[in-house]
């Protein structure tokens, strides 16, 4: 009796320890962010750093508010977000479809695999001028750019997951006389949901890279355009504000995919 009481007290202590550590970590996380911003502002206010070159949190806020007022921020952020989401969805759907085709046709896979690997190694940004000439300098070119960056890695990682499906489970379906389509639907796709989700996670980042690079090249609209324009006319406030907005949007999209992963992991994650 005494022993169990002792035990539970100790266990309480242990649980408290874990909780305290968790609180400490998140305090430090936010603390770091606040300290950096405060220090930045303080140094800019006191003139220790030149806010013309470094901008400052208060100036970023002012720029943000004025951009919001004339609505241009929403316009540019909207364009970038649209391009990113479209290329992200296209990369995911096309990538999965191509991976399925390559899984299905052995010869096709064997023929194309080295080409895909080389294409994957190529810095896709080098294709920028070609894409602009072929597709035209506009939203299309930016989406193609982002697609190029994320598609091939999606195909390769998804295909890799498809090829590594549990051999025992494939044998089981073989003993049941399953067709290739049944193997795909009952085993290969469901067992690769985690693989596809982790490809999504990588794609979120890559599509942002592709979109911003595309906007740098095309220079018509979007946050990437604001950044490159701000840089050219030396308006660091504009550059910093656009970067912060970009940061927040990318984080939100990542959180969304991470949530999706958590949801899916509950069902497909365990093996």
């Amino acid at each position: 009796m005494k022993k169990t009481l002792n035990c539970s007290a100790e266990h309480k202590k242990y649980l408290n320890g874990i909780r305290r550590k968790k609180i400490a970590i998140s305090t430090m996380r936010w603390g770091l962010l606040i300290v950096v911003i405060a220090l930045w502002e303080l140094l800019a206010q006191t003139g220790a750093i030149d806010s013309f070159i470094t901008s400052s949190p208060s100036r970023i806020w002012q720029t943000f508010v004025s951009l919001c007022k004339d609505g241009s921020l929403f316009e540019h952020a909207g364009v970038t977000l649209y391009e990113t989401v479209v290329s992200f969805l296209l990369a995911t759907v096309l990538g999965t479809v191509i991976a399925i085709a390559l899984w299905w046709f052995d010869t096709l896979r064997n023929v194309l695999e080295p080409h895909l690997v080389v294409l994957n190694a190529l810095p896709k940004i080098a294709l920028g001028p070609i894409i602009i000439i072929w597709v035209g300098a506009g939203t299309g070119a930016i989406i193609v750019m982002a697609l190029m960056i994320s598609l091939i890695i999606t195909v390769l990682s998804t295909l890799n997951g498809f090829m590594e499906v549990d051999k025992g489970k494939l044998t089981l379906l073989d003993t049941m006389n399953a067709t290739k389509l049944q193997k795909l639907i009952y085993l290969v796709l469901p067992s690769n949901v985690p693989t596809i989700i982790s490809a999504l996670k990588i794609n979120v980042g890559l599509c942002w890279v592709g979109t911003i690079m595309g906007e740098y090249l095309v220079s018509r609209a979007g946050l990437g355009y604001l950044i490159i324009y701000g840089g050219q006319v030396f308006k660091l406030d504009l550059v910093m504000t656009s970067t912060v907005v970009l940061c927040v949007l990318a984080a939100l999209m990542y959180v969304f995919v991470a949530l999706l992963e958590k949801l899916v992991d509950k069902k497909f994650g365990k093996s």
């Binding site: 549990d166 025992g168 489970k169 044998t171 089981l172 003993t175 009952y186 085993l187 469901p190 067992s191 949901v193 069902k267 497909f268 365990k270 093996s271």
Partner: peptide
């Protein structure tokens, strides 16, 4: 019936 149960976890 195979060596492992090969139950589909999902």
């Amino acid at each position: 019936m195979l060596q492992r149960d090969e139950l589909f976890p999902w």
